[in-house]
Structure formats: structure tokens, C-alpha cells
Design a protein around this nucleic acid. Sequence first.
DNA 1: TGTTTAGCCTATCGATTTTGTAGTCTAATT
DNA 2: AATTAGACTACAAAATCGATAGGCTAAACA
Lengths: 153, 153
Amino acid sequence: MISKKTKYALKALIYLSREFDKGPILIADLAREERIPKKFLELILLALKNAGVLQSKKGKGGGYSLARPPREISMGKVIRTLEGPLAPVPCVSESAYARCEECDDEWSCGIRLVMKDVRDAMAQILDSASLADVLERIEQEKQKKDGALFYTI
Amino acid sequence: MISKKTKYALKALIYLSREFDKGPILIADLAREERIPKKFLELILLALKNAGVLQSKKGKGGGYSLARPPREISMGKVIRTLEGPLAPVPCVSESAYARCEECDDEWSCGIRLVMKDVRDAMAQILDSASLADVLERIEQEKQKKDGALFYTI
DNA sequence: TGTTTAGCCTATCGATTTTGTAGTCTAATT
DNA sequence: AATTAGACTACAAAATCGATAGGCTAAACA
């Protein structure tokens, strides 16, 4: 399960994607609109900024905005930033490989072999899903729902 | 990342798969062979027994053994038992659906749409990987390694 | 220039989860 | 009845998570 922190991050980024061309958004506004504790959101946005996902402007008229267009920011990048590596075990992580302490023979570890498949499948999905894709899928779903409504009334 | 608990469980089950036809194995032996804290392993094996994965025998000559052949026990089952649902968010779990508190409109939640794909991909891999499959893949890897060794010497 | 605005940064805190340990109880075997 | 070995409960240290507090710094603007 992903943490609340990561969910907050994704919600904030989807919001910022919608407002992409409208200049910086205040943390306070984001927090209120998405019902995220303001001080907690501050930390999250800061982490995303340090990861190159967001940019910020200080002082009056300041706030946060995406550092790149929604099409160029992937769910994978966001989740890795806040949750750490996608891999279920460190020995199959591409972005942050580490040995498993308890493993003496990594090359014949059955857990590793299966978890590598899991990691690859997750990475394939999450690295190819951009914020723009997410917005599009939301719209598609809304239209599906409206269509269904039209026919069932 | 999966917990140590789950890794211990998988290591123990792979061990028990190898010894499947040799009668019950002592917790103490399992703990020593796989270097798992004995008392901790007790809890893990008990949970797996309650989930129907293992069976136990008390008293002298007792111990633990698989409740079903290795071919019929999936990684998915084991991980769900010790780690909980595979789904990254509760609202896409098949085995333990729950609403996300912070979500007001589940049907147009973009996070949910992508996470559903992730869950399905993970479930596809983990539910179709049996302990027998894992043993086979370990053997395959060992042979690959030996083959490579043969040619590079 | 100095005041206000708004993000930056560090510390801290309570609750929960993780990883384990201890000790007693119960069932089965000899 | 004595021994063996799993079953069950309780507990505790350490790590992680979710959240808050408060001062600092940079930018805008009057």
C-alpha cells in the first residue's frame, strides 16, 4: 500500500496539471482544495521540488507550479520520490540497487527471480503513465459515466 | 518493499517445498538452516497454518509441512497472508476492497485507474507463480550459471 | 528601506507498525 | 507420567508514518 504522503503528492500534482498554464499556485490553496494538512503538504512539495518535478516562486504572487509539462512527468517518478524504489526487494531495484542482507546467493534466489518480474511490470505501467495520461483517463471515465447515465435514465 | 516477515515466510516455504515428501520439519531446524529468529518464525508459520498453507504436528516427531503440494501454493497467497492485499490502494483490492477515506469520487479518481492496472499486473504474476515454479526457476538459473562457467573457463 | 508575503528548513511528537523476545499452555508421543 | 514440540499471549525496542511548531530567507512592493 502506498502512503498517504504519496497519495497527497499525486492529488496535488494532478491539481497542478489542471492549472498548468495559470502560473504559481499557493500551498494554502492546494491544501484547502485537496483537503491536505498544509504543513504536511509543504514537506511533500519541497521533496518534489528537490526531485525536479516542481518549481517554486517565493514572496507575493509566488507558489508552486510543475517544472515540466504534465506529459513529461510520470507516476513512476513521483512514487519513487516519495515512496522510494518500486522494487519489492532492493536487489531488483534499477534506481537504487542494494543487496538483501539475508541472501547469501543472490543469483539462485527464487524470491528475487519472481520479484524482478513484478518490478518490471510495475515500472512498465508507472513510468509510462504521465500526469497528462491520468487527466485524460479521468475525462474518459467521466464521459463513460455520463454516457451510461444517458442510456439508463 | 516487502517486509522481513514475508521474506522469512517465502524462504521457509521454499525450504519446505524441497523437503515436501520427507515428513514434518522442526521449526528449530528451519530457523537454523534459513537463519531466521526461531520465535519469530513460530508466529509466521502459525499465520501460514491458519491461512491453510501449512499443516503442523505436535509432540515428538512433529513439525511443519506444506498443507498442499508446492504446485498448488502461489506466491500471491503467501504475500497476501503476511503482507496484506497486493493492491497499492485499498479501493482496487479484489481480496479486501475498502474505500479510500480521502477520495470523494472514486469513479473519476485518476490514481485509482492507474493503480488498478498495477494491481492486476502484480496479481497476474504472483498468483500464477507457484512454489514449484520458483524451485524450477532456481534450477534453471543454476544451470545457466554452470553453462556460462563451462564456456568461459 | 522596511514591511509583508510565502516558501525553506529543522526539530519534535504521538501513533502505529515492525521485528523480535519471554513465558506459559496444550496436545501428542513414548 | 515424562518429554517433546507446537499454540497462544503479552510485551518491548526500534523504525516509520502522519502531522505540527516555529524560526529563517528570499522576493515583491509600497
